[in-house]
């Protein structure tokens, strides 16, 4: 008998005659957007900084990795135009150059959603190549549209779910604050493996196209 068959048959033997208690009905998922102010307060409570401009969020970072999101490219272009140059910064495709990414000062991505309940960013891997750009540099700058705030974790899970599992994003990462550890006498230290700082720039939805 294969391991699969022997495992299943022993479970079935054990459960013979067992009446399963009912599965609780799912909680209703709140409709409508989440509150931006709540999102911001929760995120700030775990050390996320909010900046009005990309230039301010990048601070003195020189070598900056970017994801493949068009919004990121557009924001970097605007920054370069406004500064009359990139302000001495160099930008590169973080997802195609791992060696450079390991040395970068900062990585810029978008977040597909924010979650008001917890101050969490949702990075949906099939929508953007931001997995390593958001993880390897010591500073992660995330662009988040103001109109993309979900109220609860339940609403976030509902937004990810697809009838056909093969249509689900292969990786989704929930990010709530910078990388942290408390493994030495419970002392909080930031940036143990991932970014030491997480900065969010809120952006406006693109203006509706003229009819």
């Amino acid at each position: 008998m294969s391991a699969r068959d022997s495992i299943l048959s022993r479970i079935r033997d054990g459960l013979r005659g067992v009446e399963a208690p009912p599965l609780p009905a799912p909680d209703p998922v709140p409709g409508g957007p989440g509150e931006l102010a709540a999102f911001r307060a929760l995120a700030e409570s775990v050390g996320v900084e909010f900046h009005d401009t990309l230039a301010s969020a990048l601070g003195d970072a020189r070598s900056v990795a970017v994801s493949d999101a068009p919004e990121v490219a557009a924001a970097v272009d605007r920054l370069a135009a406004a500064d009359g140059g990139a302000g001495g910064r160099s930008f590169f495709d973080g997802w195609s150059d791992r060696a450079a990414l390991l040395e970068a000062d900062a990585g810029i991505t978008t977040a597909q959603y924010g979650v008001a309940e917890t101050g969490t960013l949702l990075l949906i891997g099939d929508d953007e190549r931001h997995r390593l750009v958001s993880l390897l540099p010591p500073l992660h700058v995330a662009l988040l549209r103001r109109d993309r705030i979900l109220p609860t974790l339940g609403a976030a899970l509902a937004a990810l779910r697809r009838e056909d599992p093969a249509a689900m994003s292969r990786v989704t990462t929930f990010v709530t604050g910078p990388s942290r550890t408390a493994d030495i006498e419970l002392q909080l230290v930031l940036g143990v493996h991932g970014p030491r700082a997480l900065r969010v720039v809120l952006t406006d939805p693109p203006a509706a196209a003229n009819p």
Binding site: V46, P165, M168, V171, T172, T173, F174, T176, S179, G194
Partner: peptide, 8 residues
Amino acid sequence: SYQSIFTG
């Protein structure tokens, strides 16, 4: 800080 959900 992080949750990762993998589907495939």
